[in-house]
Amino acid sequence: MYAQQVETGTKAIKSLAEMGPEERAFQEKIDAEIKIEPKNWMPDNYRKTLIRQISQHAHSEIVGMLPEGNWVTRAPTLKRKLQLMAKIQDEAGHGLYLYSAMETLGADRDEEIEKLHSGRAKYSSIFNYPTLNWADMGAVGWLVDGAAIVNQVPLQRTSYGPYSRAMIRVCKEESFHQRQGYEILLHMMRHGTQAQKDMVQDAINRLWWPSLMMFGPSDAESPNSAQSMAWKIKRHTNDELRQRFIDQTIPQLELLGCTVPDPDLKWNEERGHYDFGEIQWEEFYEVLKGNGPCNRERLETRRNAIQDGAWVREAAVAHANKKQKQQAAA
C-alpha cells in the first residue's frame, strides 16, 4: 500500500452505453473478472493511473528500506540482524518486481524514478517518520506491513494481470514480515526488561496514527476512488480497509499488553467494529506535501544514491559495449 491518492484523470464514470466499442469490450472483461494483459487494448487513463499506482508502490518499497537501514547496523543479535537484512532484501526485490510490472505498461523505470526524485511522484507517507528505537523494527513489520497487506490482499485480484501476479508474491513475503515484526514485539513484552517494554509502547504510540493514514484520505475526500473501483485496480474504499485493519489489529495489540494513543477507541457492539478517534488529516496532507519529519532526508538519500552511482552504471555499460565489440571482432 503503498499508493495513496492516485489521480485517475477522470471526472465522471462512463456507463457501458456511453463507451465506444473498444472501451466497452475492455470494461466488460473487467466486469467479468478477466485480467487485462499488457498487449490488450486499454483506455489511456487506465494505463496512466496504473503506472502512477504501481510506481508509487515500487517507490514505497525502495524508500521503505531507509528507516530499516537506520537500524540494520544496530540489530541486537545475529538472528535479528539476519531477519532484518532479509526483509530489506525482499523489499528491494519487491521494488524490482513492481517496476517490471509497471514497465509492461510502457513506462520506463529510470523516468519514473526521476519523477520521484524531483518530487512529482509520491511514495507512502509512513516512511517519512523516523525510526527511533529498536522496537520500531518490530512495529514497522507489524503495523506498516500489516496495513500494506490489508490493502494488497484484495489487489491480488486486481484487473491488471502483471500487477495482480506481483501482488500475490509480494503478499506472501509481507505476511512473513508482519509475523516476524510482531514476534519482535511479543518477545520484548514477554521476556524483556521494563526499558524494552517502554520501547515497544513508545514505538506503537508514534507509529499508530501514521499507520492508519496509510489507507489514504477518508472516502468523502477520495474523488478518484470510484473510477479506480470501476476499473478494479482498487477493490475496497479507504475507510473500509482502514476499519478492517483496526479490527484485526486491536486483538493483537491486547495480546501484546499495549495500548494505542486513541482515547476514543472502543468496540461498537452494534456496528460489529471498533470505533476510533479523528485522524489528524492536516498532518497527513503536510507529510504528502513534503513537510513530514523525514521527507527531505529520504529523498536526499535516494537522489544521492542514484547520483553517486552514476559512474558505476556508466562503467558497466561501457564495459559491456567493449565486450560486445571484442566478440564481434573475434
Partner: peptide, 17 residues
C-alpha cells in the same frame, strides 16, 4: 549493511544484502 538504500542500482542493493 551500511550501504542499505545507497547502492548504485536496485540490483546491487539485492546483491550486497
Amino acid at each position: 549493511c551500511e550501504w542499505t538504500g545507497r547502492a548504485p542500482a536496485l540490483e546491487e542493493e539485492m546483491g550486497m544484502m
